[in-house]
Computed example of a mutant assay.
Amino acid sequence: MTAILTDPDSRGATPLEKIDRTGGRPVWEEEPSAIGQGIKGLSLVVVCLAILAPLWVVVVTSLSDSRTITEAGGLVIWPRTITFRSYTELLSGGIVTRAALVSVVVTLVGTVFSMAVSVLCAYGLSRTGSFAHRPILMTLMLTMFFGAGLIPTYLLVTGIGLQDSYWSMILPSAISVFNILVLRSFFMGVAPELIDSARIDGAGEWRILFRIVMPLSRAVIAVVSLFYAVGYWSQWFNASIYINDSEKYPLQMILRQIVLKQEVPPGAMGQAVSSGAISSLSVQMAVMVLALVPVAVLSPFVQKHFHKGMLIGAVKG
């Protein structure tokens, strides 16, 4: 009984204290067993197959001719005859090419505009002594939980003359409060000594932001830029309610019309589909591939910044 009472573990020693006394390591730092490694490897293989298998089917179907798609009864799993007819028709200067150009312009302009406003707002809120710092921060956070609603937003956008304007696809979703908070947290993590020394040397707020804070925050800026770019590239809802002119439709609206509404674009492509030269299903899959390519190309280049940009930025401050 005495041994039990005098046992150090019975006095409420923490797990870290036990590890220090025994010289061991926490469970999460131990080398995994062969069975554990096998389970992890199998899980990763299953997840990769679940992600890549649908993408493979979409790409193969987009490269198949009408006969192969008919024989397969729909989606093609293994290619037989490879043809790029669907892609050449889509990119031959018709409505899809114009919609892709609209999406590119909206994505570039929208990302630059959103990042400019978000960086300036986040830097101002990261300086705790700035004017109305606390009320502005609370107001921004309030909008994360309470929104105006679709009808007031629609009335506002149309009331200021943005109906059928490209800006109607940018301004209503230009700012993400979550992204501003992430940027603010990262900016607050910049060493105060650097900013104080710059002020002593006579640098103003603009010079501090562009010469010190932003170069040290490249990781979070790259990640937030990707978030904004993907959002602009993928959006279709704003175009569906604010854009009436089909000449101004972005690529996602054309994709919605082709895939969900089963509408074939007019012109040479419509004639090719009607004549059976290309399959409508092949056209649908080709448009989906075109919509996925920019995100698939950009993501690997920004992937290395995710851990530093998002995890560190979300914890600091």
Rank of each mutant, 00 (worst) to 15 (best):
S118E: 13
A53D: 10
M115K: 07
T97I: 07
R67K: 10
L125I: 04
T128M: 14
A122E: 02
I77Y: 05
S103I: 02
T97D: 02
L142A: 14
V106W: 04
T61D: 10
D65K: 06
I82N: 00
V106Q: 02
S92N: 13
I51G: 08
V117E: 00
G129R: 01
S66R: 09
R67G: 06
V96W: 10
C121N: 00
D65F: 12
D65Y: 10
L52F: 15
L137R: 15
L52Y: 15
S62A: 15
F84E: 06
A100N: 10
V47Y: 12
M141P: 03
R127Q: 07
S118D: 05
D65V: 11
A100T: 12
L44K: 12
Y123H: 13
S130C: 07
S64G: 04
S92C: 07
L125G: 01
S86D: 09
I95E: 14
P54D: 14
R80V: 08
A100C: 06
S62V: 08
L42Q: 11
T107N: 06
V47P: 14
T107E: 06
R67P: 06
V58I: 05
G41Q: 12
L63K: 07
K40Q: 09
T143E: 05
V58M: 10
D65M: 11
M141F: 04
T61P: 00
A122P: 02
L120I: 01
R80L: 07
S92R: 09
V109P: 06
E89K: 01
T128V: 14
V119F: 00
L52D: 08
E89Q: 10
S64V: 08
G74V: 12
R134W: 09
R98F: 13
C48D: 10
V102S: 06
R127H: 00
G94V: 01
S118A: 15
I77A: 12
V102C: 03
T83D: 05
A50T: 12
A72S: 06
L52K: 13
L55K: 08
S62P: 03
L125R: 02
W78Q: 13
T107Y: 11
A72T: 04
V59K: 05
G74W: 11
L101N: 04
V47I: 15
T88C: 09
L49D: 08
S126R: 02
S118Y: 12
Y87E: 03
I51R: 09
T107K: 04
C48A: 15
T107S: 12
F113C: 11
T128N: 15
P79R: 03
D65P: 10
G41F: 12
T88F: 11
A53M: 13
K40P: 10
K40H: 14
I77N: 09
G41S: 10
R98C: 13
M141D: 03
K40C: 14
L49Q: 05
C48V: 11
T111D: 00
A100H: 04
T88H: 15
T81L: 06
R85M: 08
V96N: 04
L42H: 05
V102F: 09
V96T: 04
S126V: 03
R127L: 14
V96A: 11
L90I: 15
V96D: 05
K40S: 15
S64F: 04
G74H: 13
R127A: 02
R134L: 11
L108I: 05
G124A: 10
A72N: 00
S114A: 14
R127E: 08
